[in-house]
Design a binder for these strands. Structure first.
Lengths: 254, 254
DNA sequence: AGAATAGTGTCTTTCAGACATTATTAG
DNA sequence: CTAATAATGTCTGAAAGACACTATTCT
């Protein structure tokens, strides 16, 4: 089984980026219009092949992040590998997908060399409203699912925010990514109780419409304790059900 | 940036398996002795290259699982991609690691064609007691970390158990994987309260030393609610600590 | 004075952790 | 009987969800 003159098959290695951000309180993903076959003209995730045989995979992801989205120093983590035979008509292409989280920026996209890049609402992408090349819709779904899960247990939410932010800003992140409404008062308490999640950023404040809010910045904690738990409903969706009524009813006590 | 006659670099794609199981209440990982260069004679994770250019990656993982460990129908999930240039002296080899969970089986290994396979204690592997080829020690660490985390939120623990099991069996899984001691009475209650985690398997029972225990089988739930939380200590190890009470006094009202 | 948002407090239920107690087997 | 493990119960504190209330700004 070993010393054969057999040669293992070679594959082409690509990286694809699921870059998420918040725009007007909605979760968006960055897509580019493909300029070459296959799927020329279709929307796709930013990405590309390894530049050369010596490039590290994460390095390639950061390069594409910079080239195609003009982003540096953003959160980046490996999401998964997508290598189903036949997913790319050019041959055996295996793609390593990365999840990137970008803070809400005013400008559409910065120094992009693919000027065709645009932010699309994730709901539209996932609900067949928008067609994507390859299996990219599936990858986006996995990326969003990863983000949803990590918001519970880690401080990932701060990656969606600017250097400093208010607790409302942070709440918008949770609401947009989870697709739920949260009680501001309970949210406030929970965020404050999560040790090391956020720390006060000077005695500054900020103005908008009502009372000015305190500013915070990301704290030292990477994992949250206590975690930011989603309600039983949200988490238990795939829990097999029959899973007890959860007691929840309007609550008509007294 | 597109219509060049440029050719992207090709890589060799391998799969590596982190197969975890419980043996006498300890977490073990399956290793094989390499028969070929590089690292001939050294211990390594079971795995190998894609069989041909049309083989799906997970299919390759299941094939290796069967060939090298004689295991079928076990839990299998993608763990990550390890493709650092230079990790394999033969050239650019990118390895997709999978995490497999096998139930405790009496026999060492079944119909293995690599007769050199052996179960090693994970603690020994991770604490430099045992040398592994390539970056496989690192991969084992990632696999164990994944298992630890998933035990909290998912029903993964049942994958370590046989078809039916007692609550003590399940507790041993948690204790071995997390490396902690748990209170049997609290564990009993928590497991029972996790909706859909385990369901009674007939009114049968089993004998050992003390009172016979009820038998259960895995329930329908994939995610646990409420989750099986590790103590604050364990989870908050990297929580930054010194993490001030926040209380932020930007405005010292009153 | 609104309207709007920020921040605090309170009450009830659920669950985690510590630990007593009872139940059912083997010797 | 004792030893051993299984199963249930009880108490306390932490935290979640619902929601009243106060605080600080703008118009």
């Amino acid at each position: 089984m070993n010393a054969d003159p057999w040669e293992p098959p070679a594959v082409l290695l690509a990286v694809d980026l699921v870059i998420l951000t918040l725009r007007d309180a909605r979760l968006h993903v960055l897509l580019v219009e493909r300029g070459i076959e296959p799927y020329s003209g279709a929307l796709a995730l930013p990405g590309g092949f390894l530049a050369d045989a010596h490039e590290d995979i994460e390095e390639a992801a950061r390069r594409e992040l910079s080239e195609e989205a003009g982003l540096v120093d953003v959160h980046l983590e490996m999401l998964g590998v997508y290598g189903r035979p036949g997913r790319d008509p050019r041959g055996r292409v295996v793609s390593v997908a990365y999840l990137a989280i970008a803070p809400s920026l005013p400008e559409p996209i910065a120094g992009t060399d693919a000027a065709s890049a645009c932010w699309m609402r994730v709901d539209d992408v996932l609900s067949t409203q928008v067609d994507l090349a390859f299996d990219h819709r599936h990858i986006v779904g996995d990326g969003v699912e990863r983000a949803r899960a990590k918001l519970e247990q880690t401080a990932l939410a701060t990656a969606f925010c600017a250097e400093t932010f208010t607790i409302s800003d942070l709440q918008q992140v949770y609401e947009a990514v989870w697709g739920v409404r949260l009680d501001p008062r309970n949210f406030y308490r929970k965020v404050q109780n999560a040790r090391g999640f956020i720390v006060a950023a000077g005695p500054m404040r900020r103005t908008e419409n009502g009372r000015p809010a305190r500013l915070f910045k990301a704290g030292p904690a990477r994992t949250l304790y206590p975690p930011m738990v989603r309600s039983a409903q949200a988490s238990a969706e795939d829990a097999g059900e029959a899973a007890a009524p959860v007691t929840a009813q309007g609550g008509q006590q007294t």
